[in-house]
Computed example of a mutant assay.
Amino acid sequence: MHIASSTIRRSLAATIPIVVASLALVGCGGASSSSDTGAPAPAATDQATETTAPAEAAQPGVGEVVSSDGWDFTVVSVGAAQEAVGSGALSSPAQGVYVPVTVTIVNTSNEAQFLGSDAVTIVDANGAEYSADSVASVYDQSAIPLGDVNPGITLTGPVYFDVPDGTVPTSVTFTGGLFGGQTVTVTL
Rank of each mutant, 00 (worst) to 15 (best):
M1G: 08
H2Y: 10
S5L: 15
R10H: 11
A13V: 13
V19F: 09
V19I: 12
V19D: 09
V19R: 05
V20H: 08
A21H: 08
A21M: 12
L23K: 09
G29M: 01
A31Y: 14
A31P: 06
S32D: 09
S35W: 10
D36L: 12
G38I: 05
D46P: 04
E50R: 12
T52F: 08
P54L: 10
E56Y: 09
A58M: 08
P60H: 09
G63P: 03
V65Y: 07
V65W: 10
V66K: 02
S67T: 14
D69P: 03
D69N: 11
W71T: 01
D72M: 01
D72T: 04
F73Y: 14
T74Q: 12
V75F: 03
S77I: 00
Q82E: 10
A84R: 14
A89F: 06
L90A: 15
L90N: 15
A94H: 13
A94G: 13
V97A: 07
V97C: 07
Y98D: 01
Y98H: 02
V101W: 01
T102N: 00
N107H: 06
N107R: 05
S109L: 04
S109V: 03
N110S: 15
A112H: 05
S117Y: 12
D118E: 11
A119I: 02
A119L: 05
V120E: 02
V120R: 01
T121E: 12
V123P: 05
A125Y: 06
G127E: 06
S131D: 09
S131L: 14
D133W: 09
S134K: 12
S134P: 15
S134F: 15
A136L: 05
A136I: 00
S137V: 11
V138N: 12
S142W: 05
S142L: 13
A143H: 04
A143I: 00
A143N: 02
I144A: 00
I144S: 01
V149L: 03
L155W: 03
T156K: 06
G157P: 01
G157A: 00
V159A: 01
Y160C: 00
V163P: 02
P164N: 04
D165H: 09
G166L: 02
P169S: 01
T170V: 15
S171R: 06
S171K: 03
V172H: 05
V172K: 04
T175D: 07
G176V: 01
G177N: 01
F179R: 06
G181V: 09
Q182Y: 06
Q182S: 13
V186P: 04
